[in-house]
């Protein structure tokens, strides 16, 4: 057998979301649910019980008219790198059901390994991890529309955004078939990225100079959520508004101006 494997530079897939462009339409959420066979319930009023891999939060500046301002913040899994892959959730999983890959930088979740202790949910400050409190039930006929590329989850396990990793797997098939070494930027894009009508989401390899995210992450207005906790997330946000950037992290009163850390 040939030992010539895909010896390419490690990738670090990440996202840059321009919050000034986001209108809060929710197309990304819908696309994500459909793409990833995410189960839903008849009554979804209690958001703490339903599953939304990508959730759009509404931020307000807390001021009165005419200074009132809102910002919509889509929140997928941050795929934290932490310190050398020591993301908050990965190291706590007792059964090794969640893992960090140095090859793609993606935090995986294996549903058939997870036994539902929910320690990872306690560890994640972004609430990206969701528990299947119920068995998934699809409306009559809809189970035929499920994607075969994403395994369906059962009751009692934790699930989360995978950066549509199955799309990477599918894209790589073609790369190998054509005998190429590398995946092109547009060959692997997440469902939410493609669904966003405002082009607010950019997805790509944060290590690759040619990818759009590489430049965007160094934007002076770029920041990450809860950066100072040491989670080292791979999702960046851009906003020209100071108050939005300030809500990206916790600050003591009188702490200095919010500037993106060197990364």
């Amino acid at each position: 057998m040939k030992k010539a494997q895909e010896h390419t530079a490690p990738k670090k897939y990440g996202m840059v979301i321009d919050l000034d462009k986001c209108t809060g339409c929710g197309a990304c959420m819908a696309a994500c649910m459909a793409e990833n066979n995410v189960p839903f319930r008849e009554d979804e009023t209690d958001k703490n019980l339903s599953i939304t891999w990508l959730r759009v939060y509404k931020l307000t500046n807390g001021k009165k008219f005419p200074n009132a301002d809102v910002c919509y913040l889509p929140r997928p899994c941050m795929h934290c790198e932490g310190h050398h892959g020591h993301s908050p959730c990965v190291s706590v999983c007792p059964a090794t059901a969640t893992d960090y890959s140095y090859d793609t930088g993606i935090v995986s979740q294996i549903y058939t390994r997870c036994f539902g202790c929910r320690y990872c949910m306690a560890a994640c400050p972004y609430h990206v991890r969701y528990f299947n409190w119920w068995d998934p039930v699809w409306p009559e006929g809809m189970e035929k529309m499920l994607s075969p590329n994403v395994s369906v989850r059962t009751r009692g396990v934790v699930e989360k955004c995978s950066f549509c990793f199955h799309r990477y797997q599918i894209a790589m098939e073609k790369v190998r078939y054509e005998g190429r070494a590398e995946l092109a930027e547009d060959e692997y894009q997440t469902a939410c990225t493609q669904a966003c009508p405002a082009n607010a989401i950019t997805f790509g390899d944060l290590n690759n100079h040619d990818h759009a995210v590489y430049k965007l992450k160094t934007h002076p207005d770029a920041f990450r959520l809860l950066e100072r906790l040491g989670t080292n997330p791979k999702v960046y946000y851009i906003s020209s508004r100071e108050w939005v950037r300030r809500q990206g992290d916790n600050y003591l009163e009188n702490e200095g101006k919010v500037v993106a850390k060197a990364h």
Binding site: C93, P94, G116, V157
Partner: peptide
Amino acid sequence: DIGQPLRGWFIFWHANVHS
């Protein structure tokens, strides 16, 4: 307390010692 009690033995068999 665990979501999949029948898989409870995974904590021993597939132990992640860092947890």
